[in-house]
Design a protein around this nucleic acid. Structure first.
Lengths: 208, 208, 208, 208
DNA sequence: CATGAATGAGCTTTCATTCAT
DNA sequence: AATGAATGAAAGCTCATTCAT
């Protein structure tokens, strides 16, 4: 009651429902009706909160990106040792399974929104923020004396994000060639080589 | 007369037109009508050759994958020196521009077809063939004494393909953060680190 | 407000329009567009109420059958004398003209729906209800001492329904060999013979 | 080679194929393609022999009607005793099963063609020929002293054809309420009553 | 004589979106 | 704040029909 239109519970439910709906039907197959049903409202209500589908998708992407980035930043900031930071970053960058709705949605939205020039800036921004995060970790590692880099730190950070993206796509697309644990190990393999720090290893991921 | 229904000129024109249409509108926005117009035939003719859109897309993906893989294999086989092989592989793996229709189509189709379990096998197969290609190059390089690997060759090969995929996606999505030349340099950076071979450098690509 | 989706005026209008449309074009030629125009709504509205054409046809058939059967039952129940009952039944069983939309629709739908095993049960049910109605009249007539049967009452009832069906088809198909009045007289002819009751005569149907 | 266009084997095969196709899909669902495939020719060939679908259907109906009527007439002429004639007529008038292609086709075509004024004459003609056949049998029976009629012979003949039509429709539509044997018995029931000749009984039809 | 290739015309169906309530 | 009802617009697909060969 006290809330505004952009803070209502229904609005949040719709955004959440969109994530779920996208896991089931993809961005392309996404129907307002699906979102509405999952959110327990009518399609007209969806349009009451979001002028059109595109607006809804942008909002979902914005919130998702923020959540994704902020979570990682908080997590990495809480760890002092650069080696542990890097391990944690890698582990957190891999979608835990084919059913992770947030990550699925982000990949789908990247592909979808990326097709229009107008949104490229947003995507670029997210990518660069991720790179910056890795870059910071690498520099801390060098400062702590754990990492020795033979290539520019920026290049390494960029590659780490790229590997995350690629393997994330493999996992989210049900391409069983690269399961999550293997993806983590592969990225760690690169991180070890690039930092000359043999302690960058993937955590044992039993029980997944 | 000599040609069958699956070899006719019209059929080839439709497949070609699909590539072009996908560059313009993406897989999602793809309309049979666009394909038909670009191919200079009626929509009914498109359906005469392909039962439905999905069938057409699968065929485009199949032919595209084959062409992509076969071309690279032929190219790499023609080069004797492993260092040159690797340089060539990397250069060929990067879409030359945002307008490369074949590569755009392949990325789009990967995303689209990947959403259905039935096609995952095909996608996996393509991925593994690419990895095998890199693997062979790495092993030749070791045998020639040019490369020294400190991680399993399979892991390195896998990462090289993953980087290609990720940067390819960046280029094809018009995300100007990573232009083709930079992508090539970044992959080379990894290749140098992993092979301990300083001669793996991206060709100067002025004028792009 | 008080009305639900399955009781709305538009829904009824669509069903009514379907009857009219079927008189003009038959079941086969029936286009959603015709129904929509006759009902004064858009084709999308037709699909809003009925998932597809088949669903609409089934509903029309169901309502039509009910109406047809219920009307007759009420009418016959209101008449005490079995001879008058039988006369009324026969008169009501003959479509009054080639333009009777309800009856035309029922014949068309019988033919159409009957082609799929799934609906056979419905058709059978309608047939048996009609037979039961005639059977009751015959038994009342015997009880009242007006009718004398030399064949099983069930067989006679069955034949009366069959004759109705056959002549109804003749009338509805514009086969002018058997006009309504003649059909009524022919069925009465059988009824007289079977009941040995000479008072079963068709009403004079001048002016039709 | 020596044959003309209207006598060729292909032409006959197409007509035969139409009968079969109609059993499977009904008149409405009938596609030129089905006919062509069943006849082992291309759709273009179907149009080579028949200008359009309607023409083909008319031809099928014409040949079917002729065959149906001629067969019955020949059969009845070969039997001297009127009681046996009548029994034979009734037995031959009932489609032997739900899969009798010729009879199915005729019913379907009656419904289909009857919808257009132009063909009503043909249908009327067939009906009247059938009536004439029964009429002749009845008159012979009276002359032989086997039958005693209390209603006009024409009315009885008309009703017999009507019953045939109705039960034929029931059988051909897979309405299992009235199986062939029962239909025959019901018609005989009427025939007995109308002719006052107790010897008109349906043949035992075991094994059906 | 027969047909493969091609198409025009038309249909059902889907769906985001609007609006009175 | 929320929605049921309704729709315009568009897309995929089907099919009888044509015609050059």
């Amino acid at each position: 009651m006290g809330r505004r239109k952009d803070q209502s519970a229904a609005r949040a439910a719709i955004i959440e429902a969109t994530l779920t709906a996208m896991r089931r039907r993809g961005v392309n197959g996404l129907r307002v009706r699906d979102v509405a049903e999952l959110a327990g409202v009518s399609t007209a209500t969806v349009h009451y909160y979001f002028d059109d589908l595109e607006t809804l998708l942008r909002e979902v992407h914005r919130q998702g990106s923020d959540r994704f980035f902020t979570d990682r930043m908080a997590m990495v900031a809480a760890i002092p040792d650069a080696r542990a930071k890097l391990r944690a970053m890698i582990a957190a960058g891999i979608p835990s399974s084919v059913d992770d709705p947030l990550v699925i949605a982000l990949y789908q939205l990247n592909a979808h929104l990326g097709f229009h020039d107008e949104h490229s800036l947003l995507l670029t921004a997210l990518y660069e923020k991720q790179v910056a995060l890795y870059l910071a970790v690498l520099e801390v590692g060098v400062a702590q004396g754990h990492f020795t880099l033979t290539e520019p730190a920026l290049d390494i950070a960029s590659n780490l994000v790229a590997l995350e993206d690629a393997y994330g796509l493999h996992i989210v697309t049900p391409n069983r060639a690269v399961p999550p644990a293997r993806a983590a190990e592969l990225i760690c393999s690169y991180a070890r080589t690039a930092t000359h720090c043999p302690e960058i290893t993937a955590p044992c991921q039993e029980g997944r």
